[in-house]
């Protein structure tokens, strides 16, 4: 199974719009939404049944038993995350706690215990022929590479004979992005033609370059700023990154999303453009098989 990861560096560039169109065009049998902070892909993919849910446990957090606490203040003094507040009884803020266990270690009366904590919700949609894995991180939980890894693992576990997996990536350049990059065969970066879009794209390319994966770029809303759009293409040429195509700004795309459809479900300019990008991307992704065999 070839895994294609769609990334953008920042949110809102149209990552999910492109991913949902690709899933439709490829009739993908396996796909996942790794944007666990703000998952959107489930809004535009069609599933009639409810997902199977599973709790995701992050690091354990400190739990303080008030009756055992002697208010010695050692835990508060040692906590590096300002998660303990003085008082009667002492209190641990589970959002601030990073699960290091120092407070439990220094507590002379054993009043603090490290207990498992739910940090997110994994959801798996599955039928006879296809699988869709997604998750939602609980509000206030830290970004989590492991949750992203679990989303991908659930997809892989049930992917059966799928030849292609489409993965909607996380925004940013932090830990979840790195986790979503691991093990993928190709990354398609959706860039927006703006000064900040270029800066974000360069950061995500630098991040992706550390991985053993093919990197390609396309632009979304390219006609919003043709000059910068041109610059992005030049940049790709200079860096030797294959450029997959341009998607124009298209009010019909907004309409499609609001109707829970993908842009290839309706007849619109952005749908035509993304179809071409899809074909270019598939050619590149599956050519890679022979290039590996050669090397």
């Amino acid at each position: 199974m070839k895994q294609l990861l769609i990334l953008s560096g920042k949110g809102g560039t149209g990552k999910t719009t492109v991913a949902s169109a690709f899933i439709k065009l490829a009739k993908a049998k396996a796909y996942a939404d790794c944007d666990v902070d703000a998952p959107n892909l489930h809004l535009v993919t069609e599933w009639n049944q409810k997902p199977v849910r599973r709790d995701y446990y992050g690091l354990p957090v400190a739990e303080l038993t008030a009756e055992l606490c002697t208010s010695c203040d050692l835990c508060r003094q040692h906590c590096r995350f300002a998660a303990v507040s003085a008082g009667d009884p002492y209190l641990v803020d589970p959002y601030a706690c990073e699960g290091c266990g120092v407070c439990a270690y220094v507590c002379p009366t054993g009043a603090i215990e490290m207990v498992p904590a739910v940090a997110g919700d994994l959801k798996l949609y599955r039928d006879e022929e296809k699988v869709f894995s997604t998750a939602q991180l609980k509000m206030g939980s830290g970004t989590s590479g492991l949750l992203v890894t679990e989303v991908k693992n659930e997809m892989k576990t049930f992917a059966c004979d799928a030849s292609l997996a489409v993965i909607d990536g996380s925004p940013g350049i932090g830990c979840p992005v790195i986790a979503s990059l691991s093990g993928v065969d190709m990354v398609l970066i959706v860039a927006e033609p703006s000064i900040s879009g270029i800066s974000d794209m360069e950061r995500i390319i630098r991040t992706a370059e550390g991985f053993d994966t093919k990197i390609a770029v396309c632009t979304n809303k390219h006609n919003m700023n043709p000059t910068i759009s041109e610059k992005i293409e030049q940049y790709c040429e200079g860096e030797g990154l294959p450029f997959m195509g341009r998607i124009p700004f298209d009010p019909a795309a907004v309409k499609a999303v609001n109707d829970a459809q993908t842009i290839v479900d309706i007849d619109c300019p952005s749908g035509v453009a993304v179809t071409e990008i899809f074909e270019n991307t598939m050619a590149l992704l599956f050519n890679r098989v022979s290039s590996i065999a050669d090397g």
């Binding site: 641990v92 803020d93 589970p94 739910v118």
Partner: peptide
């Protein structure tokens, strides 16, 4: 302050 620190109060 969430601090009941009981997991069920985690929200």
């Amino acid at each position: 302050v969430s601090l009941m620190a009981k997991r069920q109060c985690c929200e």
